[in-house]
Design a protein around this nucleic acid. Sequence first.
DNA 1: GTCTATAGCATGATAGAC
DNA 2: GTCTATCATGCTATAGAC
Lengths: 226, 226
Amino acid sequence: MTDTKTRLLDAAEALFADHGIAATSLRDITTSAKANLAAVNYHFGGKDGLLEAVFDRRLRPVNRERLALLDAFESAAGAECVPLEQILYANLAPPFRTLEEWGESGQRFMRIVARINADPSSRIHEAFLRHFDVIRTRFLAALGRTLPDLDPTEVERRFHYSLAAMLHTFCWGAQIDCLCAHPSDHRERVFTSLIEYAVAGLQAPRHSIDVDEMRRLEVEFEGAPV
Amino acid sequence: MTDTKTRLLDAAEALFADHGIAATSLRDITTSAKANLAAVNYHFGGKDGLLEAVFDRRLRPVNRERLALLDAFESAAGAECVPLEQILYANLAPPFRTLEEWGESGQRFMRIVARINADPSSRIHEAFLRHFDVIRTRFLAALGRTLPDLDPTEVERRFHYSLAAMLHTFCWGAQIDCLCAHPSDHRERVFTSLIEYAVAGLQAPRHSIDVDEMRRLEVEFEGAPV
DNA sequence: GTCTATAGCATGATAGAC
DNA sequence: GTCTATCATGCTATAGAC
């Protein structure tokens, strides 16, 4: 039998992911972990501490690996800028590897991450964001070097779009048909698909679309029978 | 004074968005709405009914407008396929318009949508998804016609990436510096930025990246000093 | 370090007067 | 349609035995 602390973390991770964080009570967790109700307060100081410990445990190694990968690619590039696909690979490969190595548990964890990310009102949201401070800075810098002609504001926007696509995939991967149509090579395909999409998006030419023209088209058809 | 039902909807929308759904009690809502505690059960049958009514109220007109726009562009295209940017415009313009027309209230609503979307365990999640059944089918069909050479599975994946970028923007728009650096023309810029990014992403060439090569590069640097 | 027991409070829902 | 009053349940957190 693993120790109480680990059993609590495992149980909390599973329940938070499956039923939501707010909907999961300490009773649910301690019952599932076959631990005592008071154990949570003893080991983690409360529910918030437990939640923080849950994502600390997995997020820390993932983000360390992300930085290591970016370092490696930057070394390989020397004075050149790092190719876009390598920057995205450095960002995506570690969580995907976690998904594989941790199995069900990894999938559940990613769903928790997606949920906290979408809920800025969560009390631990700030602590959550702090995990990404360095990541954000380093990856934005790398992207800026590779896309020198793009307004830094626009670089940041597009970086966020790419992160959103990734998080959405982790959150929905198990449920959207198209994302798991072929279970065997599923993850590998999605991984490649995400990078291809984001590389193209990040490189999108500016002023390539004419919004006003579509507005005109829209007005033309206003009041047309629906 | 507006009627109780509307006041309850307004109060619930604001509180759900600002503090989260689970963290908002019926007491918070009825107090804020200057209504009686029992009013929620009378008008909506309970908390879930209220939540469903909250997003029904705004989602229905937005999705109706989406379909109307797509219809208009398909009419304009005749036998041709609808250009990608028009399909994305039809999907994006209605929620952006809502954001403008409803002001603060619209922003809050979008945050609720993003939150429910990221939380598949919510009891009303199924009801939520039903709002998008027709949208999903119609837009996927249009995309498939415009991208005939792309595997339908891949079309669906990329459609999801694009939706994710949009939702993420609605959820974070007010908080990420880069998304609101220039308040005056902020929304117009983000709107255009999103379409440019998604159009490029949807058109991404397949097999344009070599994952294995990056894996080799990674192994080469394995164990390098971090 | 783990347990039992319980304090102290907030919750969603409802019954029934008006 | 709106109110008051209350029920039954669930919650987190803690005190104190072992």
